[in-house]
Amino acid sequence: KKYAKSKYDFVARNNSELSVLKDDILEILDDRKQWWKVRNASGDSGFVPNNILDIVRP
């Protein structure tokens, strides 16, 4: 599994996007496009722009 940390707050604008808060740790589900599909600690998933994410190295 790959993880990323959010650098900023992001508010979803539709139901395919995921609202995240700065410093959230997110599991990366799909990173093939500019919007990555991620899952948060609550189990919710959706798309966020990859420019707000930093890859977390294990």
Results as ranks from 00 to 15, higher is better:
Ile28Ser: 00
Trp36Thr: 14
Pro49Glu: 04
Lys2Met: 07
Asp23Gly: 13
Asp54Trp: 07
Arg13Ser: 09
Gly43Asp: 05
Arg13Met: 05
Asp30Ser: 09
Asn15Ala: 12
Ser19Asn: 11
Glu17Met: 13
Asn51Cys: 13
Tyr8Gly: 13
Lys2Asp: 04
Lys2Glu: 07
Ile52Leu: 10
Asn14Leu: 05
Leu21Val: 12
Pro49Arg: 04
Ser42Leu: 14
Pro49His: 12
Asn40Val: 04
Ser45Val: 11
Gln34Val: 12
Tyr3Ser: 05
Arg57Leu: 10
Arg32Ser: 14
Val11Ile: 10
Asp23Asn: 15
Tyr8Ser: 13
Asn14Lys: 10
Asp54Ile: 10
Lys2Ile: 15
Asp31Met: 11
Asp54Leu: 09
Lys37Ala: 07
Leu21Asp: 11
Leu21Lys: 15
Val38Glu: 01
Phe10Thr: 02
Asp30Asn: 08
Phe10Leu: 03
Tyr8His: 15
Gly43Asn: 08
Leu29Arg: 04
Lys5Pro: 02
Ser42Val: 02
Arg13Thr: 11
Arg57Met: 12
Asp44Asn: 15
Gln34Leu: 12
Asn50Gly: 11
Pro49Phe: 02
Ala4Lys: 03
Asp24Ser: 09
Ser42Asn: 04
Gly43His: 03
Glu27Val: 07
Ala41Phe: 11
Glu17Trp: 04
Ala12Ile: 02
Leu53Trp: 03
Ser45Thr: 11
Leu18Ile: 14
Pro58Thr: 15
Pro58Leu: 04
Asp31Lys: 08
Leu26Glu: 02
Ala12Asp: 02
Leu29Gln: 09
Ala12Arg: 10
Ile28Lys: 01
Asp44Ser: 14
Asn14Cys: 05
Ser6Pro: 06
Ser42Pro: 04
Val38Leu: 07
Pro58Arg: 06
Ser19Leu: 03
Arg57Lys: 15
Ala41Thr: 14
Trp36Glu: 02
Ser16Gly: 12
Asp23Leu: 04
Trp35Leu: 14
Asp30Cys: 10
Ser19Pro: 06
Val56Asp: 15
Asp24Glu: 07
Gly46Cys: 01
Arg32Cys: 12
Leu53Pro: 02
Ser42Gly: 14
Asn50Val: 10
Tyr8Leu: 13
Asp9Val: 05
Ile25Leu: 13
Glu27Thr: 06
Ala4Phe: 15
Asp30Phe: 04
Ile52Asp: 02
Gly46Phe: 03
Asp9Cys: 15
Asp24Arg: 02
Asp9Ser: 08
Leu53Ile: 15
Arg13Gln: 15
Ala12Thr: 04
Arg39Glu: 09
Arg57Phe: 15
Leu29Asn: 03
Arg13Asn: 10
Asp30Tyr: 06
Asp9His: 07
Lys33Thr: 11
Asp9Pro: 06
Lys37Gln: 08
Lys37Pro: 03
Phe10His: 07
Tyr3Pro: 02
Asp31Arg: 09
Asp24Met: 08
Arg32Asp: 15
Ala12Val: 02
Asn51Val: 08
Ile25His: 09
Asn50Tyr: 09
Lys7Ala: 08
Ala4Tyr: 15
Ile55Trp: 11
Ile25Met: 14
Phe10Gln: 01
Phe10Trp: 05
Asn40Ser: 11
Asp31Gln: 10
Lys2Arg: 05
Asn15Thr: 11
Lys2Pro: 02
Val20Met: 05
Ser45Glu: 11
Asp54Ala: 12
Asp54Cys: 07
Lys7Leu: 10
Ser16Asp: 12
Asn14Ile: 08
Arg57His: 06
Lys2Asn: 15
Asn40Gly: 07
Ser42Cys: 03
Ser42Met: 04
Pro49Tyr: 02
Val11Met: 11
Asn50Asp: 14
Lys5Gln: 05
Val48Met: 03
Gly46Trp: 00
Tyr8Cys: 15
Asn51Arg: 12
Val11Asn: 11
Glu17Phe: 07
Arg13Phe: 05
Leu18Arg: 01
Ile28Phe: 00
Asn50Phe: 08
Glu17Leu: 04
Ser16Glu: 12
Leu26Met: 09
Phe10Arg: 07
Phe10Tyr: 08
Trp36Pro: 09
Asn15Lys: 14
Asn51Gly: 11
Trp35Val: 14
Leu18Phe: 05
Gln34Glu: 13
Asn40Asp: 10
Arg13Pro: 04
Pro58Ala: 12
Leu21Tyr: 14
Ile52Cys: 14
Ile52Met: 09
Asn15Met: 11
Asp44Pro: 03
Lys7Val: 06
Val38Met: 08
Asp9Lys: 09
Leu26Gln: 01
Ser42Tyr: 03
Asn50Trp: 06
Val48Arg: 00
Arg32Met: 13
Lys1Gln: 15
Ala41Asp: 11
Asp9Glu: 09
Asp44Arg: 12
Gln34Phe: 15
Val48Asn: 00
Ser19Asp: 09
Lys7Ser: 07
Tyr3Asn: 05
Phe10Cys: 03
Asn14Val: 06
Lys5Asp: 01
Val20His: 01
Ala41Trp: 08
Tyr8Glu: 15
Pro58Val: 06
Ser19Arg: 05
Asp24Phe: 00
Lys22Ile: 06
Ile55Thr: 09
Gln34Arg: 14
Leu21His: 12
Glu27Phe: 06
Asp31Pro: 08
Trp36Ile: 10
Val38Thr: 03
Arg13Leu: 06
Ser6Thr: 08
Lys37His: 15
Tyr3Thr: 05
Val56His: 15
Ser6Val: 11
Gly46Ile: 02
Asp44Gly: 11
Glu27Met: 06
Ala41Leu: 10
Gly46Thr: 00
Ile55Pro: 13
Asn14Gln: 15
Asn14Trp: 04
Ser45Asp: 09
Ile25Asp: 07
Asp24Ile: 01
Lys1Ser: 07
Lys33Phe: 15
Arg57Tyr: 08
Tyr3Phe: 15
Leu53Gly: 06
Asn50Gln: 10
Gly46Leu: 01
Lys37Gly: 06
Val11His: 11
Lys22Pro: 02
Ser45Asn: 13
Glu17Gln: 12
Val11Gly: 07
Lys1Thr: 09
Glu27Pro: 00
Leu26Thr: 02
Ile55Met: 10
Ala4Ser: 10
Ile28Gly: 01
Val56Gln: 14
Trp35Met: 14
Val38Gly: 02
Ser6Arg: 00
Asp31Cys: 13
Ser19Gly: 09
Asn51Gln: 13
Lys22Ala: 07
Trp36Ser: 14
Arg57Ser: 13
Gly43Ala: 05
Ser45Ile: 03
Ile52Arg: 03
Asn15Asp: 13
Trp36Asp: 02
Asn51Tyr: 15
Phe10Val: 03
Asn40Lys: 12
Arg13Glu: 05
Asp54Ser: 12
Ala4Leu: 13
Lys22Asp: 00
Ser16His: 15
Gly43Val: 00
Asn15Leu: 08
Gln34Pro: 14
Lys7Thr: 09
Leu21Gln: 15
Lys33Val: 07
Ser16Ile: 13
Glu17Asp: 08
Leu29Gly: 01
Asn40Glu: 03
Ile52Gln: 05
Val38Asn: 01
Leu21Arg: 13
Asp44Ile: 08
Trp36Lys: 09
Lys33Asp: 13
Ala41Pro: 12
Val56Glu: 13
Lys7Ile: 09
Tyr8Phe: 11
Gly46Asn: 02
Leu21Ser: 15
Asn14Glu: 15
Asp30Leu: 06
Asp44Tyr: 09
Asn14Met: 06
Arg39Phe: 02
Leu29Ser: 03
Leu18Asp: 01
Val48Thr: 02
Gly46Arg: 01
Arg39His: 01
Ser42Gln: 15
Leu26Ser: 01
Arg32Glu: 14
Pro58Cys: 13
Arg39Lys: 15
Leu53Lys: 00
Arg32Phe: 09
Asn40Cys: 06
Ile25Lys: 11
Glu17Ala: 06
Lys33Glu: 15
Val20Tyr: 01
Ile25Ala: 07
Val11Thr: 09
Lys37Met: 11
Arg13Tyr: 05
Ile55Leu: 12
Leu21Thr: 11
Lys37Glu: 13
Lys33Gly: 12
Phe47Asp: 03
Asn50Arg: 10
Ser16Arg: 11
Ser45Arg: 13
Trp36Asn: 04
Lys1Met: 09
Asn15Pro: 14
Glu27Tyr: 06
Leu53Gln: 01
Phe10Ile: 02
Val38Ala: 09
Asp44Cys: 12
Leu53Tyr: 01
Ser45Pro: 07
Leu21Ala: 13
Ile28Thr: 02
Val20Pro: 00
Lys37Cys: 10
Asp31Asn: 09
Arg39Tyr: 03
Asp24Val: 05
Val38Tyr: 01
Asn40Arg: 09
Val56Ser: 13
Trp35Cys: 14
Gly46Lys: 02
Asp30Ala: 06
